[in-house]
Lab assay of single mutants.
Amino acid sequence: MATGGRRGAAAAPLLVAVAALLLGAAGHLYPGEVCPGMDIRNNLTRLHELENCSVIEGHLQILLMFKTRPEDFRDLSFPKLIMITDYLLLFRVYGLESLKDLFPNLTVIRGSRLFFNYALVIFEMVHLKELGLYNLMNITRGSVRIEKNNELCYLATIDWSRILDSVEDNYIVLNKDDNEECGDICPGTAKGKTNCPATVINGQFVERCWTHSHCQKVCPTICKSHGCTAEGLCCHSECLGNCSQPDDPTKCVACRNFYLDGRCVETCPPPYYHFQDWRCVNFSFCQDLHHKCKNSRRQGCHQYVIHNNKCIPECPSGYTMNSSNLLCTPCLGPCPKVCHLLEGEKTIDSVTSAQELRGCTVINGSLIINIRGGNNLAAELEANLGLIEEISGYLKIRRSYALVSLSFFRKLRLIRGETLEIGNYSFYALDNQNLRQLWDWSKHNLTITQGKLFFHYNPKLCLSEIHKMEEVSGTKGRQERNDIALKTNGDQASCENELLKFSYIRTSFDKI
C-alpha cells in the first residue's frame, strides 16, 4: 500500500482533458527560462521544448504516446526543470519506465491550478516501474492521483506527508504495488545497510526511497516546507523545498512566496507586481503582455491589467481597466465587458449561442446573426445582446428569417469595421425574408467608422429604411451602385405612401 494514499474509496472516473512563447529569463536562482504550460502528445517531438525550461508557468501534460519505446527515452533528460506552477499529468506514455532521468531536479509542483483537485496525476502508464522524482520536495496545493499503472512499484516507500501538507485526498490505487509483488529495495538494503531515512506512518517504520538508488530526502521537522541542505541544516524561511546553503534567500532552489532578481522575498516591493503567484514583474512586463494579447485571437491570451499590486489576466467583477495605466478602477454604474472572439468572429444561430455573449459591452471581433427560429426570440436576444455598444469588426445579418427588427441591439452605437466582410463591408444584410426595420432612427444613433453597407434580398425592408441608415451611420456616399439592390429590397412591402385627393359631386333626387 502506498504510504499516505487512500484505498478502496469510491472515486469519480478520471477524465483526461485534452506555445513556446518565453516569458522571460528567471535569473540567477533558476538555471534556465520560464516556459508556458505545455500539452505534449502523440510523439516526442515537442518534448524537446523543455530543454531550457527551469519553470513551467502553467501545467505540463505528457500523454497518448503509443509508439514510443524505452530506448526512445534513454537520452532524454531535462535537468534544468525545477518547478511547475500548476500540475504534472502523465497518461498512456508507452515505453517510459521512470522519471528519474527525465526530470531529475523537479523540486516543486505548486498546484496553482489543479487537474480535478490533483497536482500530480500518473494514470495508465503501462510501462512505468517507478516514479523516480527523487528531488520532489513540495506539492504546495492539491493532491496526488496514481492509478492503474500495472508495473509501478516504489510507492509504499514514499512518505507523501513530507511532500504535501495533507495526504487525506491522495488516491493511489490499482498499481502493481497493490499486489505486494514489488519487493522494493532501498539503497544499501541488499548489503544489509540502512542508507535512507525511515519514518513512521500508520504504525509502520519504513525506509523512504524513490528507487533502488535514490533515497527520499527527509528534512528535520523544524525546517517545515522550506527544505534543508545535504547536511540537514534548514533553508531560509522564504525558500521552498530545498537550498544549497542554509538561511540564505539567494540560495533557495525555489521560493515559498515570490522570486525577485535572484532572491526569494515575502512580497513584491514597489515598483514590482505579483505575477502568477510566484514571481515579481515590473510595469513594462505587464504592459507588454497586455499589448501582445490586445489584437491576438490565441486562446488563453489575456490583456493583463494591474489590481491590488498584482498583474492579473482581467479586472475583477465591479472594476474596469483604465487604459492609460492598466489599473483596475471601480465602475460607475454597470461595468464594461470586452469579449474577445477566439477566431475573430462568432455566429449567433440560437439563443444558446447568444447567451455566451451575455453582459458583453464591447465585441472584439465580428458578429454573424443567422437565426431561423426560436421561442420568445426578441426578448431572449435583447437579454443577451442588448448591452453590446461596440463591435470592432463587422455585423452580418444573414438568412435570419425569424427577425423582424434589429432593435434587440438596443445599445449598439459603434461598428468600427477594423475587419470587413469580403474585404469591403462593415454591415452586411443578406436574404432576411421578414426583416422590416433596422432601428427606430428617431431614437437610435449608430456610427460606422469604416467599410460599406450591403443589402440584398431583404424583400420587406424598404429602401427608405436603408437610406436612413446611410445618413445616420455616416456611410452615405461610400456605397457603390450594386451594394444596395434596388429590386430585391422592399419588393414585397408597401414602401411608397402617396396622399390621394378626392373630389365629389353631391346629387339628390331633384338636383344634379
Rank of each mutant, 00 (worst) to 15 (best):
E180M: 09
N295Q: 09
D178V: 11
P316K: 03
C280L: 01
D277S: 12
G318L: 06
K224P: 08
R256C: 03
C315E: 03
L152F: 01
D75K: 04
M321V: 15
D39V: 15
G227S: 13
S317P: 08
V108K: 02
K251S: 06
G142T: 00
V108M: 09
P269T: 14
N309V: 04
Y134F: 13
T189R: 10
L106R: 00
D288P: 02
P36R: 10
C209G: 03
I163D: 01
P316H: 04
H274T: 14
C264W: 02
S54E: 07
R141Y: 06
F283R: 10
R256W: 03
R256S: 07
E207N: 01
V218F: 11
A230Q: 15
V108I: 13
H214V: 11
C209M: 02
K310A: 10
L131P: 01
Q204N: 14
E314H: 02
Y87P: 02
L81Y: 00
R141E: 11
R297W: 08
L50E: 01
L164N: 06
L120I: 14
K67L: 06
I40M: 10
Q61R: 02
E168M: 08
Y171V: 15
L327G: 02
P269G: 11
Q276V: 10
T199P: 09
L44M: 07
N43E: 10
H236K: 02
Y304L: 04
E238F: 06
R208P: 14
P187T: 10
K148V: 05
K80F: 03
I109M: 02
I56V: 05
N105Y: 06
C182K: 14
H28A: 07
H212N: 13
V200F: 13
S98W: 02
C234T: 03
C223L: 02
Y273E: 02
L120D: 00
G32K: 05
G318Q: 10
G203F: 06
D86R: 02
P249R: 07
F78R: 02
D165P: 14
D178G: 15
E151Q: 13
N309K: 09
I172E: 05
I201P: 15
V126L: 15
C286R: 02
T229Y: 03
L128I: 08
M38S: 03
L29P: 04
S77D: 04
H28W: 07
C264S: 01
K310F: 06
L88K: 00
S296F: 14
Q245E: 12
C35R: 00
N150R: 14
G183S: 12
H127R: 03
V167M: 01
L90G: 00
N195H: 10
N325S: 15
L81I: 00
G58N: 00
T320F: 14
G232S: 13
C228P: 02
E180K: 10
T229A: 07
G132F: 00
V305I: 06
M125D: 05
L29M: 08
C335H: 10
S98N: 08
C219K: 03
T329G: 13
S98P: 00
S237Y: 08
Y87I: 00
R110P: 00
F78P: 00
G111S: 02
L60C: 02
D288A: 11
Q216H: 10
D72F: 04
I62T: 00
W210L: 06
T320E: 08
D247S: 03
K148W: 03
K251P: 00
Q276P: 03
F258M: 04
H48C: 04
C228A: 02
C196E: 13
E97M: 04
G142D: 01
D261T: 15
I158D: 05
F116N: 15
E33I: 06
C219A: 08
N202F: 12
L64Q: 02
